[in-house]
């Protein structure tokens, strides 16, 4: 139950982010969640979109360095300590979260978090039987409509 995340290399120069998001807009790609990891010289733009395959194709055609990474989306209760519980569950199984970013969801009382781990299967297995549920690609977009 992975989610396809688009990862994009963005050089730190004015207008670059506008160019890249412009390509997605022109191709009617809907962005559901995003995060930017930045360093002095460049950033990595990470996106969850409705049509990752088309998005990747259009970005590559424009000469933009991009790739698809499988990540997990988890749904947790929108309450204090819920995210901590999720992370602790993974950490107890020795699973390290490389990065994570949250986004709002119209589903009442729930928050969605994208997490990047080395081994998606092991993480999915670790979360089985807990109150944390894995969210599929379609689910994210169905609910947002």
């Amino acid at each position: 139950m992975y989610i396809k995340q688009i990862s994009i290399f963005v050089e730190n120069k004015p207008g670059r982010l506008a160019d890249i998001t412009g390509i997605l807009a022109d191709n009617k790609i809907d962005i559901r969640a995003l995060s930017i990891a930045d360093t002095t010289d460049y950033g990595i733009l990470r996106l969850i979109v409705n049509d990752p395959d088309t998005a990747l194709e259009k970005l590559k055609a424009a000469g933009i360095t991009s790739s698809i990474t499988n990540v997990l989306a988890i749904g947790i209760p929108d309450e204090a300590g819920a995210f901590s519980d999720a992370i602790r569950t993974l950490s107890a199984k020795g699973i390290n979260v490389e990065y994570a970013y949250a986004f709002i969801t119209p589903e009442a009382g729930a928050a969605y978090v994208i997490i990047r781990v080395e081994d998606n299967d092991a993480a999915a297995e670790a979360l089985k039987g807990t109150s944390i549920k894995l969210i599929g690609q379609q689910e994210i977009f169905n609910q947002s409509k």
């Binding site: 990862s7 290399f9 360093t39 460049y42 990595i44 360095t65 790739s67």
Partner: peptide
């Protein structure tokens, strides 16, 4: 930057 060097991970 090249496709082979690129990663979603800064590290």
């Amino acid at each position: 930057m090249s496709d082979t060097m690129f990663s979603d991970s800064v590290k």
